[in-house]
Computed example of a mutant assay.
Amino acid sequence: MAHGWIILDKPLGLGSTQAVAAVKRNLREAGYGKKVKVGHGGTLDPLASGILPVALGEATKLTGRMLDASKIYEFSVRFGEETDTLDLEGKVIATSEVRPTAEQAKAVLERFTGPIEQVPPMYSALKIDGERAYDLARAGVEVEMKSRSVTVFDLALLRFDEAEGATFVAHVSKGTYIRSLARDIARALGTCGTVTLLRRIKAGPFDLSHAISLDKLNEFGKGAPLEQILLPLEAGLDDIPAIDLTPEQAGAVRQGRVLTGMPHEDGLYCGFEGATPVALVQLTDHEVRVVRGFNLSDVAE
């Protein structure tokens, strides 16, 4: 049984669902059939590329944590036009003759760093009265998108070209829409803008150094060893300290029992028996309680 992470460098034009389907297809072709659970840790639009964490087996229990993790994006904005989708897929709805300078672009970034309010794009996967916003938009239904609170931890100008526009890098919290951020930066500069490139370069603990191409994934489907593309389950927990468990303690944790007398500070830990992750545990007042257990007894099958 396979447990762990395949980190795809998702190409342009491929949706997240299609990317996950490609992983499932290659697992079937490699002889795993349908017995491996597969999930992903963060949607990427077809017009976006980059890091898409795909969880297998017991790692699917961590996809919620991956969805909540901060992410880093590179994105390019061409000034002078705004589309209804805020990217190249949409139709132009506003134009401006104003073209900012690099110095002006740098100067406004402080306004968009830290906790901010932003209005999500109408063409987004947010649900409004049970319907996806992009479905309502495509049907011609006008809906007022409500402002939401997000955090931009860091925002910097990477490159600037008077003709092509600006390229930024942003480290953002869960729920941040980069297309909205680009729209608002352009408007703060007295113009309008459209995202021409969007690339996720980090999601949680995973960056491009962990990522494989679709070609590499397809090699696995044709017989290459799974070990060449699969990261262990605990790779998704690099931001959580480990706690060592004795075989007796590990057995108790697997049964959901509370451990007492643990000499550690309060907090979230990953409990290990040797090299095998047993569970995410919460330690409070020297007591350990299971948050999420992992059934890795079949890891060698």
Rank of each mutant, 00 (worst) to 15 (best):
I7H: 07
D9R: 04
D9S: 03
L12W: 11
A19Q: 07
A19W: 05
A19G: 06
A21D: 14
R25D: 14
G31Y: 09
Y32V: 09
G33S: 03
K34L: 05
H40D: 00
G41T: 05
L44M: 01
V54R: 01
A55E: 00
L56E: 03
A59W: 12
T60P: 02
K61M: 03
G64Y: 01
A69F: 02
A69G: 00
F75Q: 07
R78F: 11
F79W: 13
F79L: 07
E82Y: 01
T83V: 11
D84V: 11
I93S: 10
I93M: 11
E97P: 03
R99D: 07
A102R: 14
A102E: 15
E103W: 02
K106L: 12
V108A: 04
E110Y: 09
R111T: 12
T113Y: 04
I116N: 02
M122V: 13
S124G: 08
K127T: 10
D129A: 13
D129L: 09
G130P: 08
A133K: 02
A133R: 04
Y134A: 02
L136D: 03
L136M: 05
R138L: 11
R138D: 01
A139K: 15
V143C: 07
E144P: 03
E144C: 03
M145A: 06
M145H: 06
K146Y: 02
L157M: 09
L157N: 08
E164K: 15
G165A: 09
G165L: 12
V169I: 14
H171D: 15
K174L: 07
T176G: 07
T176Q: 09
I178N: 05
R183H: 06
A186V: 08
T191L: 02
T196Q: 01
R200K: 11
A203D: 13
P205M: 05
D207W: 05
L208N: 08
L208Y: 04
L208Q: 10
F220Y: 09
G221P: 10
A224N: 09
L226W: 10
L226P: 08
L226C: 09
I229E: 04
P232F: 12
E234Q: 14
G236Y: 12
I240V: 15
P241N: 00
A242T: 14
I243M: 14
I243K: 10
L245A: 15
T246K: 05
E248W: 10
E248L: 14
A250D: 04
G251V: 02
R254E: 06
G256P: 05
T260M: 06
G261H: 04
E265S: 13
Q282Y: 06
T284P: 04
H286E: 15
R289G: 04
V290C: 07
V291I: 14
V299I: 15
E301G: 11
